[in-house]
Amino acid sequence: MSEQLSTLYAKLLGETASITWQELQPFFARGAVLWVEGAQDLVAMAAGLAENDQAQVQRWLQAGVLGKLDDATAADLAERQPSLWAVVVAPWVLVQERASA
C-alpha cells in the first residue's frame, strides 16, 4: 500500500460510523447507497472509490461484492434493523452489515 493510499485509508477509517436503517433511508431513496458484502474491507473499497481506481472498482462490481443497494436488501434491512457500518465517499454512502460479535 502506498503512503498516499495508507494516509487515505487512515482518514476514511476515522470517518466510518455506525448508522441505522432510518438514517440511511434518505440516501437509499436518492440511489446513493453502495452495499459492501460482509467479508470485504469497507474502508479499502471506500479508498478505491476515492482514488478513482476504476479497474479495481469494476472488479468488485463484477464479483458482486460491491453494488448499489437493491430493493430486496433494503427491505431486509428495514425488517431486521441490523447493526450497519458506513463511510461516505461523495456522492456515495458505502454500507456494510457489521459482523455479529
Rank of each mutant, 00 (worst) to 15 (best):
V33Y: 04
Y9L: 01
L5A: 11
M45S: 03
A55N: 12
A50M: 04
D71L: 08
Q96S: 07
L34S: 02
L42R: 08
A78S: 10
Q54G: 11
A74F: 08
A74C: 10
A17L: 03
P26F: 08
G48Q: 10
R98C: 08
L94D: 09
L49R: 04
L12V: 06
T7Y: 06
A101C: 05
S18L: 06
A78L: 10
S6Q: 15
D41P: 02
T16V: 09
A10S: 13
R80L: 08
D70I: 04
L5S: 12
G14H: 11
V33E: 02
S6W: 10
A90C: 01
Q81I: 01
Q25A: 09
V43D: 04
W60R: 10
G64D: 12
S6R: 14
A17P: 00
W35M: 09
A50H: 06
R59G: 01
D71F: 05
S18D: 12
L77D: 03
G31W: 07
E15S: 08
V93N: 02
K11E: 13
Q40D: 02
A39P: 00
Q96M: 09
R59T: 15
Q25K: 10
S18V: 12
Q62K: 12
D70E: 12
L24I: 02
Q81E: 14
Q96K: 15
G48I: 05
E15D: 10
Y9V: 04
A32D: 08
L49G: 02
A46N: 06
G67L: 06
E79I: 01
A39Y: 11
Q4W: 08
P82A: 04
L84T: 11
L12R: 05
Q4E: 14
V95E: 05
A90T: 14
W85S: 11
R80G: 00
A74Y: 06
G64V: 10
R80C: 01
L34M: 15
E97G: 04
E51C: 02
L49V: 09
W60L: 12
R98Q: 15
L69T: 07
D71Y: 07
A17I: 00
T73K: 13
I19S: 01
W21M: 00
L69G: 02
A29Q: 12
K68C: 05
L34G: 02
Q4T: 13
Q62F: 03
V93E: 05
R80I: 07
L34P: 00
L49S: 01
Q22E: 13
Q56I: 09
L13T: 11
A78F: 07
E97W: 06
V57T: 15
A47R: 04
A63I: 07
S6L: 12
A78H: 09
A46K: 06
S83N: 04
S2N: 12
A55R: 13
Q81F: 03
L77G: 01
N52V: 07
P82F: 08
Q56Y: 15
